[in-house]
Simulated scan of single mutants.
Amino acid sequence: MSVLKVDSVVMQFGGVVAVNNLNIEVEKGHIQALIGPNGAGKTTAFNVITGVYTPTKGNVYLNNEKITGLTPDKIAMKGIARTFQNIRLFKNLTVLDNILIANHLHVKSNFISSTLRLPWSKAEERHMREKSEMLLNKLGLLHLKNEIANSLPYGEQRKLEIARALATDAKLLLLDEPAAGMNPHETMALSNFIHTIRDEFELTIFMIEHHMDLVMEISDKIYVLDFGQLIAEGTADEVKNNPRVIEAYLGVEEDAEN
């Protein structure tokens, strides 16, 4: 069953076509990846999926519902969450506060009820705190709940960013280069972490990643972009042995006579 469908999407900025006729399907429960050289259009594709950009042509569907043109907050409420290549935490707030803020996506209290501390508003706040602590406990971060986010080691900050995305009750998680800046030990831990959250929270995961060892190890299916064009798709073995993929990453040797 397809959770996400990108159907013939074109994203054009003036005369520049950043994504050209992109077709992607992400299956429920899968970990799938979008790879390609720098400038291939990967982040543009993510921005189209999450509503940052409205595509020039084509549509995006979540569980067969068209979400093209919806704002990022509306798309998040429908169950898509994302992280970013550069970690975007509330760095001067605690770990727990970062999770509590994400929980507010589905909060029903308004400014007046919160200010007056009405009973149902207080009960909702207590529920959010309990839910946030339960999430941190599941992800092995509860012992850090009072730590300032910016004081955490890099790998733990990345985990916190993913935990904050999960706090929105997402069912489709988009990870934008989750292993960026990590050493081999942190990358291995991240691989285990991604598998754990996929199973624990019954997630579907779609990621952009340059770390090929990570991509090849955990991806059920891989899509390859080059200059905004999809040039290959398939399993890890199919993709890594594809001549067009090899050419896109390594280039073509010039004729020896030149």
Rank of each mutant, 00 (worst) to 15 (best):
Q85F: 13
S132A: 15
A76R: 03
K159T: 05
V239H: 06
A102P: 07
L139P: 02
F193Q: 08
R117A: 07
S191W: 02
N150E: 13
Y61P: 02
G51C: 05
L203G: 08
V19A: 06
G39S: 01
N192R: 15
M212V: 11
Q12K: 14
L160I: 12
H210G: 08
E177W: 09
D220S: 13
P37S: 10
I222K: 03
A149W: 04
E209N: 11
Q32G: 00
P184F: 13
K145W: 09
L250G: 08
E200Y: 01
D169R: 04
A236Q: 09
E200A: 11
E254A: 10
D226T: 05
E202F: 06
M207A: 03
V224E: 03
G14I: 14
I101E: 12
S8T: 10
L214S: 05
N241H: 14
Q157V: 11
L250E: 04
T56D: 02
L225M: 08
R117K: 15
T168W: 06
K74S: 09
E200F: 00
S191L: 04
D199I: 06
M216A: 12
I80A: 07
Y53Q: 07
E147Q: 14
D97S: 13
F13T: 03
I246H: 08
L116C: 11
E253G: 12
K145E: 14
A45E: 00
I101Y: 09
V239N: 11
L190Y: 06
G140Y: 02
N242V: 04
G29R: 02
L172M: 06
E133H: 01
N86A: 09
I80H: 04
K5M: 13
A163E: 00
E147G: 02
T44G: 08
T94E: 11
D237P: 01
G181A: 05
R88H: 10
Y53T: 01
T43C: 12
N86T: 11
F84P: 07
L225R: 01
E238Q: 15
R164C: 06
M182D: 01
A76N: 12
R244I: 09
A163R: 03
E25R: 07
I112D: 01
Y53N: 01
P153I: 10
V19F: 00
A45W: 00
K78F: 05
I67V: 13
N258R: 06
I218M: 03
K171T: 11
P243G: 01
E247S: 14
Q157K: 14
K145L: 11
E156W: 07
L190A: 11
M128K: 13
T187N: 09
L34N: 03
I24G: 00
G69H: 08
K240A: 03
P55R: 06
A102Y: 09
V252W: 01
A167N: 05
N183Y: 11
R82A: 12
V6I: 15
T43D: 04
F111Q: 12
V60M: 03
E147A: 14
R129W: 00
K221R: 15
Q157E: 11
H185N: 13
H211Q: 11
V17L: 06
L166W: 00
A165W: 05
E238F: 02
I31A: 07
V19D: 01
I194M: 12
Y223D: 05
A248R: 08
K138P: 07
L139N: 04
H104D: 12
I231Y: 10
A40N: 12
L4E: 02
E161I: 05
S132G: 09
S132I: 01
L34H: 03
S109E: 10
G39W: 02
K240D: 00
N63M: 10
G15L: 07
